[in-house]
Amino acid sequence: MACKAGKKSAGRYGDGLMIWHPADMPAPLLRVELEDIPGIGTNMARRLYRSGIQTTEQLYRLQPKHMRKLWNNVTGERLWYALHGYDIQAPEAERGMFGHGRVLPPESRSLHGAYEIARLLLIKAARRLRREGYYCAGLWLWLSIRDGSWSSKHHLPVVNDDQAILTGLDALWRQVRADYPGGLTIFRVGVTLYNISKANQRQLDMLLMDDKRRQRWESASRAIDELNARYGRTVMSLGMWQPPVGGHVGGKISYTRIPSTEDFW
């Protein structure tokens, strides 16, 4: 928070160098706007306002358990300790999903063009899912369109092969076509595989007798991955492999992950 305050110092874009000495606390902290506190976004701020907390000072005066109650989880209590100078470390985050998104080039903003890029992004996400030994049980598609956004989810049996995942994308894309029969302009597309479980922890669907079929598709996906790894690029994929102009399909530096060379194949 001190660094963040340092970036705004004296009406200029500062260098982020700001030291708050213990003897001076909490005065500099109380000058920070409530919504500038990391961890308090628009929704949380609204919740705090509803509870009569309008300023950082009011938040600072709360009790830890009160903050926990406001947050509805332990994060509130952790934030109390952080605000009061305790060295609280965030717990190790566990992976919850695999996803990719991309702004579409002008020539790919039609339904067909966007689908092709969504397909490539999804194949990339599925490759990462397999590389890290996970299965997924859901697919989320998000589109940025002229009037806002469109999104929908699709349940998958616990799978990690390209065929099953692309079938899920087809189902979602049929939904898009049904919602927009006259077509639409899509500016950005995002795909996410969620509800993930480790290969040795997955729960199979008792009512879905497709294990044999799945195993065959999993073998096919594995063979495709091995071929691509051997040649160091995408030499085989389900469907055409035509990256859009500008490249960068699934191979970007995210906030939480450094991409590996494989992400660019």
Partner: peptide, 28 residues
């Protein structure tokens, strides 16, 4: 190198297994 017909000298790097944490309540 395993590329066909290359057999060149390689440079080794080690991949980081740990993922950086997402932002959690201003504590990360």
């Amino acid at each position: 190198c395993r590329a066909r017909g290359c057999s060149g000298v390689v440079r080794m790097s080690i991949q980081s297994n740990s993922k950086t944490s997402g932002f959690v309540g201003g504590l990360a």
